[in-house]
Design a protein around this nucleic acid. Structure first.
Lengths: 409, 409
DNA sequence: ATACTTTTATAATATTTTTTAAAAGATTAT
DNA sequence: ATAATCTTTTAAAAAATATTATAAAAGTAT
């Protein structure tokens, strides 16, 4: 079973005809992956290869076990079509969502189903050999517990906060201790290919593939948690910039007379809008005797973190909502800059704060109305993600499949 | 002579084999246009078609008069290659650069040479039938004066300031009186296809094809004249946004406590940085008795416009340079936002102010050093355009050829 | 002068598509 | 309801197309 041959990118020293055939297979698999089960006739239209050839290629792929007969479909006025789909169990993808204080792992089949998911809380990200070893151990344990043969794993997708150079597989902010770069390191240790990117961009890929950005060409995805990340889909493609540093939305200037940011500049958006600031403000207020549900939480010994604040907001806590509203005014200001520059068709809010839905959306929308040129902003839809906590893991899957099924190079 | 067959986009009702052949021709022509004369062997490598087939396709194109034998090239250790190139005189492109107060026209041959260029000064842009008629008349007169057969013109490229929806050929800010949109209107009147876009984006295309952005993937092009326009090359492609409104750099927020902008918002970059503001400030200062070369100009009865200010700056006028420096501090601030968001590899300054070269570059660079995260900004080169006043016309040529030679759809 | 390269041309082979036909179901008029 | 006519899908044969392999031509390097 030539499991991997389909995806190998630089088939060197191989006959040209083999490359061509690989490309044809890829086109078909690509179409079936992104559009679901299809008949020969449908594939023909989509991939622009003649019907007899598509039929024979599909036949081959069935032979390899990669495609399955998916029964016969509805007729639209003629013979009923035989449908084909990707064999979901032909291969699997591992998703790794690295957060500052937790780790999410998942295994996907080729129908994008999470056949396994686990969350490791209190797994603090630190730049040490120990962390890397522990991370590998968690992944290895998952693999052995699932009992799926190692060769069945197509690739590993990783989401991590901070500056990431996806092209070279480097994580600059975190885990820079990994030899030869994080992707290379993990790839060698796990014996699988690894696709790495920054959390906000991974989220954007998730939204583009499985969320509200499907079929949209210009979408901004905001990851509102402790920090404030931005992933951009521009002209239908993920934008990473020259070094993968694009999306530093948290450090655009909002208030020239504002606070000092940890980045050294003054008045960055992140000094005014972020989960961290929200929590800080709440804590300060509790100390000052502000009446709020969060004060109760505090008395009950509950930790006052972003999760708690979101909970309070969802419970209707007036003070917390007020704080959020204030933050959103600034966020809206920042978004207006983005919208004026990029003219996106949609802005998706994700991250922990997206759980509050309309409560976060409305004040942002208000602020945008105030600060944006309506001619431009009226073309932009503002919504909350519906992938929410799953967006990073779904994004890793999307990223892996995008890389694996890409035709270019 | 089937002049146009090569470019026709949606060949409907035509045999599939014809479409395929058209695509093959297009690939070859594309390569020769963008890379200059090449041998069969080179073309084979570039377009990934076999050598005997490429040879026969090139033969066909020579038969149509589209390609020329370009003699034999240097050997690199074997038989010397026959070179082929596009026949520069096979077709021509008309470039139209519409400015607020002037109009530039040019005719290009397929080697991108301006075989004709004319500048019409004091041709004020206004939204009237009269303007359109006058514009058409200028173009028609140029065509008849040149005496090149009408069928020889491949297309017309237009650059115009303001909001432009290139996809639909609409100019929103100017000339909105044109029936069915500006592109459609001109196309019907001239009997040629028309490619339309906003001046800053056209400039960006010019820089990408002929200027400093060649071979770069992420470049921001700033058009610094009376206004402040932005054209972006992202992932190697021009970014226009959903409606072609992307690039409203002049209306991003810089100073929340600043002046009212004509767009209704407060503290837009354009209220702090633009040729218009520069001229305004200079005039005010002259009234107040500020010693400056410009005061002399004024006494001599010379009009104090941006051109005069640029002249003074080039002459070393201390006051004017001071004014420019102040402006550039704000411009740098704005650019930092762009760089943080998009992580470009290069920022190109064009427009009238680019004529001042280092004098405008240095203060902008200084400001960027101050306000940007060096990790990101250090990856970005800041330069002045060397196309300068030609960038719009060159851009129209680039835009036309990009559209004509595009493979997609 | 000989061996080695690169480029181009030709012939043989392989691939892909077009054409044609058959199978299977939907639609419609009687 | 049923036969006749259309559709759509699939299969197989024939034709067209493109590629690979081979050879020849025209150079360079030693």
């Amino acid at each position: 079973m030539r499991t991997q041959f389909l995806y190998e990118k630089n088939l060197t020293g191989v006959a040209n005809s083999v490359k061509r055939k690989q490309e044809q297979y890829l086109k078909i698999v690509r179409h079936l992956y992104y559009n679901g089960a299809a008949s020969i006739a449908e594939i023909v239209k989509a991939v622009k290869i003649s019907q007899p050839l598509v039929a024979s290629l599909v036949d081959d792929l069935m032979g390899y076990g990669m495609l399955l007969d998916n029964g016969i479909g509805e007729s639209i006025g003629g013979r009923r079509p035989n449908l084909f789909c990707i064999n979901p169990e032909y291969q699997y993808v591992i998703g790794v969502d690295i957060n500052l204080h937790s780790l999410n792992l998942a295994v996907f089949d080729l129908s994008n189903k999470q056949i396994h998911r686990e969350e490791i809380k209190y797994f603090d990200l630190e730049n040490s050999e120990e962390y890397l070893t522990a991370l590998l151990e968690k992944i290895e344990r998952m693999i052995s517990r699932l009992g799926i043969a190692r060769e069945k794993y197509l690739s590993v997708g990783i989401s991590i906060p901070g500056l990431v150079d996806a092209r070279h597989g480097l994580s600059h902010t975190h885990l820079s201790v990994a030899e030869n770069g994080l992707a290379q390191y993990l790839s060698e240790k796990l014996g699988m290919s690894v696709q790495l990117d920054n959390d906000a961009r991974i989220m954007a890929l998730g939204e583009k593939a499985f969320g509200k950005a499907i079929d949209k060409e210009n979408v901004l995805c905001l990851n509102l948690s402790n920090g404030i990340g931005l992933g951009m889909i521009l002209n239908g493609e993920l934008h990473s910039g020259k070094n993968g540093f694009a999306g530093e939305f948290g450090h655009i200037l909002i208030d020239p007379k504002g606070e000092l940011c940890h980045c050294g500049k003054i008045g960055c958006l992140e000094t005014l809008t972020s989960g961290k600031i929200l929590v800080r403000n709440v804590k300060k207020a509790i100390e000052n005797g502000q009446p709020t549900i969060l004060a109760q939480y505090h008395e009950e010994g509950k930790k006052i973190d972003l999760r708690a604040v979101v909970e309070a907001i969802q419970a209707g806590d007036q003070f917390a909502i007020d704080q959020l509203n204030q933050m959103c005014e600034y966020l809206g200001k920042g978004l207006v800059t983005l919208i004026h520059l990029l003219n996106p068709e949609m802005v998706i809010i994700g991250g922990k704060l997206a759980h509050t839905g309309k409560i976060v959306l409305d004040p942002v929308a208000m602020s945008m109305n105030k600060y944006a040129m309506s001619r431009i902003s009226s073309e932009t839809e503002l919504v909350c993600s519906d992938l929410l906590d799953n967006s990073a893991l779904m994004g890793t899957m999307a990223n892996v499949m995008k890389c694996v099924l890409s035709l270019d190079e």
